[in-house]
Design a protein around this nucleic acid. Structure first.
Lengths: 206, 206
DNA sequence: CGGTAATTTGAATCCGCGTTCAGGGAACCC
DNA sequence: GGGTTCCCTGAACGCGGATTCAAATTACCG
């Protein structure tokens, strides 16, 4: 509406957020610059003022939120003390919004052919695995977990979450959200040779 | 070259194969009809003679090979007898060509917004999980495996393979092809509560 | 207040690419 | 060997959409 609605550097994040929304709805391939502009209440060339090209804008949008995600997640997980509880908290946090996984899937697919996106994805994954591994190492040290090879266990748990989340995001009836979390938890118990504490939420039926 | 190089229904599969190749290289989004036509040594409109639209052609290409993949895999696996060996054979077969997983990732991403592709993907996944589950059930019946919930174990193994294959396809240095197979095997042993027989190939160093 | 820099816009440009069209050569059938 | 069908082609069409441009509007600064 007004030609200068906000000062300097509120614009870029705003555009990136709008782009991420549109991507989540339409997918990267079907996202037009005009869509993002409309969501911002702005004309298409305005976006080109802040970003060099559509490609650059979408690439940035695809990776902008992820750091925040990990920060939130690490904050949530580090709150609790015992490794078992931390692991449960992590698994819950990672599985509670499986729909959002669609954005990761987009990132993966575009990372197949874009070196920068590939590097970004790897950075996120390293961070993610490290978060898991830290818990595993603590659990082993505390005698709670039995894992001969913590990095491998962490890798397996991460992959398990990825694979199941993808299917959940795709609406697989076999992998509903509750079943997703259950399966990861049960499998993690096997992989870690430990019983994990029940989660706080509890079940619906008494 | 020659105007009628092949009879009736050799053309469609040929086009689909070419399309699958191009998709594997460029990705669905960047695949042009002209690319596929060129690979077939044919003009673009020729493809439109066999397929109604680009979209239909690509969708079909994305799912054409998969049935063959499962048939091959099931044939390979059913050759051996003991559940443990069958499981190892299945895991090896599924992990030996991680690069090909890129095509699956493309399928997933497009399935997010295309009902037919989504249904096709689910069909494949059901079949894939069933193959795993059959082995698990046999192993439990034979007393070789210890799995309280075979469908869940199968789901977990499938998800594990998916998640790790995706990272391998993305060139993650942490998930090289050998490490991929090792990790799946080691994790499957945990999930199934069983030692799996060493694979035939053996290791490189003596 | 004027001058300058920052931000946005509407309109125009430009191009890639899917698709359409009007034929044209080959096989097949009689 | 003439008609019919099948498969394909070159050229043209047309559209969607990214990017460019010149101008306008606004903020900031003296």
């Amino acid at each position: 509406m007004s030609p200068r609605p906000s000062i300097d550097h509120i614009r870029r994040p705003q555009i990136l957020a709008a782009a991420a929304e549109v991507i989540a709805e339409r997918g990267v391939a079907a996202t037009r610059i005009a869509d993002v502009a409309e969501r911002c209440g702005v004309s298409p060339p305005a976006l080109l003022y802040w970003f060099d090209s559509k490609e650059q804008l979408l690439a940035e949008a695809l990776t902008a939120d992820d750091d925040r995600f990990y920060e939130e997640l690490e904050a949530r997980v580090d709150g609790t003390a015992a490794p078992g509880e931390r692991m449960v908290a992590l698994i819950e946090a990672a599985t509670e919004n499986a729909e959002d996984f669609a954005l990761w899937m987009e990132l993966w697919t575009w990372a197949l052919r874009d070196a920068e996106l590939r590097a970004a994805r790897e950075r996120f994954d390293v961070r993610w695995r490290a978060a898991i591994e830290a818990i595993v190492v603590d659990g082993v040290a505390a005698g709670e977990f039995d894992a001969a090879d913590p990095p491998r266990a962490a890798l397996a748990i991460a992959a398990l979450i990825d694979g199941l989340s993808a299917q959940a995001a795709l609406g697989d009836p076999e992998v509903s959200n509750p079943r997703l979390a259950e399966t990861v938890l049960a499998s993690a118990e096997r992989l870690l040779g430990a019983e994990l504490p029940a989660r706080a939420g509890g079940r619906a039926s008494p």
